[in-house]
């Protein structure tokens, strides 16, 4: 037994310089999967025939991430980005679990995602996509019954109806992030929509000119399993002590608003960092 291991080691020692092509496929794939979708397509897959082959594997496309290109670049290349996204979905053979796209999503693209990925899609982030309509979003999200995490930050066109649709059609939803979705929520409609339709929520990050303090209490009442509530970027006046006390009753992690949110979030919308769901970055 010892000698056999030593022989193997001896052999490895003889080879001059590591040959990256000798690595097991899954080890190489583990690196390449961490690249963005566009990088896999336009760079990694063209490196050599082995990598080209590895990149044909549907499991390489379980995560689709087309972010970090900024507003101008994404919109200038909108058609290409949409095509790349569709191509990646095709390559996944319906196995997409995680989608993260910014700026360029349209109603059509979201409908395509819903029709082709709904079976396995558990995490979705659609952020800052100005061309996505409330109606288009609602129609598509109705099909995404497997969603566990959803980030719709800066989708200002979404109404409280879309939140109700999410709640009704995505029963597994545990995490919701909605930063700056509606301009104001004087009647606490958004809070009521969340409280009424998402009782199973564990994590909630919400910000903008809402929710009001009453809205927060409505959410806390309606979502008894909430373990994490992040209001850091909220621009509302709250009686923090009162909220903290209430959150302590629910034994949860509460992030109160930071007082400087207005100045630090002045440039919201552009170049905001992507919040990744897969855990390799946040």
């Amino acid at each position: 037994m010892i000698s056999s291991i030593l022989v193997i080691n001896e052999n490895m020692k003889i080879t001059t310089g590591p040959n990256w092509l000798d690595l097991p496929r899954d080890v190489t794939a583990n690196i390449l999967q961490r690249l963005g979708t566009i990088e896999i397509l336009t760079s990694a897959s063209q490196v050599c025939s082995l990598w080209w082959n590895i990149c044909k594997d549907p499991c390489m496309w379980r995560t689709i991430n087309i972010t970090k290109y900024g507003y101008k670049h994404s919109m200038r290349n909108k058609d290409k980005f949409v095509k790349i996204c569709r191509n990646a979905i095709e390559r996944s053979c319906g196995q997409v679990e995680d989608i993260d796209i910014e700026h360029f999503a349209t109603d059509d693209l979201l409908a395509y995602i819903a029709d082709n990925c709904a079976g396995h899609l558990r995490h979705m982030r659609i952020a800052m996509c100005a061309e996505l309509s409330d109606k288009g979003f609602c129609e598509s999200v109705k099909k995404m019954s497997q969603l566990e995490t959803l980030d719709i930050s800066y989708q200002t066109q979404l109404s409280k109806d879309s939140l109700e649709i999410i709640g009704r059609y995505c029963p597994l939803l545990k995490t919701l992030k909605c930063r700056w979705i509606v301009a104001n929520d004087r009647e606490n409609d958004v809070s009521f929509a969340i409280a009424k339709t998402m009782p199973g929520l564990h994590h909630l990050k919400i910000c903008g000119n809402m929710p009001s303090e009453d809205g927060v209490l409505v959410i806390l009442d309606g979502c008894p399993f909430l373990k994490y509530l992040d209001l850091k970027e909220c621009c509302c006046y709250y009686n923090i002590e009162r909220l903290e006390k209430r959150c302590r009753e629910n034994v949860m992690d509460f992030r109160p608003p930071s007082l400087h949110c207005y100045s630090s979030r002045y440039d919201y919308g552009w170049g905001i960092e992507s919040e990744n769901w897969s855990g390799y970055e946040d």
């Binding site: 990256w20 690196i31 990088e39 760079s43 490196v47 080209w52």
Partner: peptide
């Protein structure tokens, strides 16, 4: 380390990635 390597080849050209890993273009 897979993530570290991915970060270091992110946004790089095909040629850069080949050089990084010492991989020949065998197409």
């Amino acid at each position: 380390l897979s993530q570290v390597i991915a970060d270091r080849i992110a946004n790089k050209s095909v040629e850069y990635v080949r050089r990084y890993f010492g991989i020949e273009n065998d197409f």
